[in-house]
Amino acid sequence: MKERGCKAMKSYKNQVLVVCLNPTFQETLVYKRLQIGEVNRTRLHRLDASGKGMNVVRVLTQLGTNCTLLSHLGGSRIQEFLELANKDKVNIVWTDSNSPIRTCITILQTEVFSTTELIQESESVQIGTEEEIRHLYTKHLKEVDAVIFSGTRSPGYSENLYAQMVKEAKDTGKFVVLDYRGEDLKRSLSMKPNIIKPNLSEFCSTFFPSYDVIAEQQDSGHLKQQVSQIMKELYDKYQTMTIITHGSKDLWAYDGVSWYEIPAKKVKAINTIGCGDAFTAGLVHAYINEQCFSQALDTALNAAALNATCITPGSLYDNSLKNFAR
């Protein structure tokens, strides 16, 4: 469908607060080809502070946007996480959850250009963590004009936490972007976030829970009519714009005026972990630099494409090759 107009965006000049309640150590291991059932030795690997929000802040920082990550940290590796974040010039405000930071593993195969993600589920945060997060959130919310909520919350937080935090941001006039799914997303919609940005699998699992899981490379054309109808209903009811990514497939978006169907940028992908986070960062960076919606989508797609060409997850360039072990 053709774009029918360019919806101007309001200008925000101050900081962005990114909320991520699921921090991660990201181990990236590179092989020519992984042999299942065999001993596999890698000559190339790296360790990064990660989690969706950390990836978003790293890219925003690389783009030159002032931003802060709000999260919890816990366990015996807090200082290691902070040192890794400091190398990326990421500013973090945090509270101790007394729960260990999880580790996720990315396996890259260079011969077949594949990315495989092994996810460790988070442990529950301890009693009192949510109260401290809310205190830090209210304090730092005063300093910013835009808030990004990125990723699912760890166990131990109350089911209404995200919705309450979104309401607080909207009540104080902040621009709010949500990148999470499921019941948390549904509960947050009545607070009228400005943009939601799930991928297609997350969108379908939220609004069409009886559907099978949508794989990243799966054809999605048969879903377009149903998905676009929900996107329009969300805008009509909540004035919320929707952007849906689907890996290397076309992006779908609706801003209340126009439907957008835009091809992903074609690149030789190395590591696709963090592409959605780079997209979110590029989108908000464009927004605060007064780009209209269609321009912001293009900026976001460029950021996602750059991320895919890097080994570092959630980054526009590999600026720390010395962090690699060989």
Rank of each mutant, 00 (worst) to 15 (best):
N160A: 12
Q295Y: 09
A325F: 03
H135Q: 14
S158Y: 08
T312A: 09
V93H: 03
P155D: 15
S220M: 13
S320M: 06
S76P: 15
V144K: 06
V57S: 11
V56I: 07
G282N: 07
E27L: 07
N199V: 03
A296W: 06
L178R: 03
T312G: 01
E183V: 01
M1G: 10
A146G: 05
I105P: 15
V19G: 08
I270F: 04
N14I: 14
L44K: 10
Y162I: 01
M231V: 01
E130I: 05
D96K: 09
L161V: 03
N160S: 15
V56T: 01
N66C: 14
L185D: 01
A303P: 08
D184C: 00
L297K: 15
T172N: 09
T312F: 10
V166R: 07
E27A: 10
S158V: 09
K265S: 12
L21C: 14
C20T: 07
E168L: 10
L297Q: 00
F175R: 11
H72L: 14
E202M: 05
Y317D: 13
D184R: 02
K186N: 06
E123V: 11
L189W: 04
V30Q: 14
F113D: 13
D179R: 05
A281W: 03
E233K: 12
V176D: 06
T42Q: 04
P263W: 09
N289T: 06
W94I: 02
V90M: 12
L141G: 10
I243A: 15
S320F: 13
T129I: 01
I273Y: 04
R4Y: 05
K322Y: 02
G51C: 13
C104T: 01
N91K: 12
L301D: 04
G221P: 11
V227P: 02
G182S: 05
V93E: 03
A281N: 13
E233C: 10
R46E: 12
W259E: 15
H45Y: 15
L316R: 02
V39S: 13
Q35P: 11
T68S: 14
K174M: 03
E38D: 09
G128W: 11
N160I: 15
A296M: 04
D212A: 04
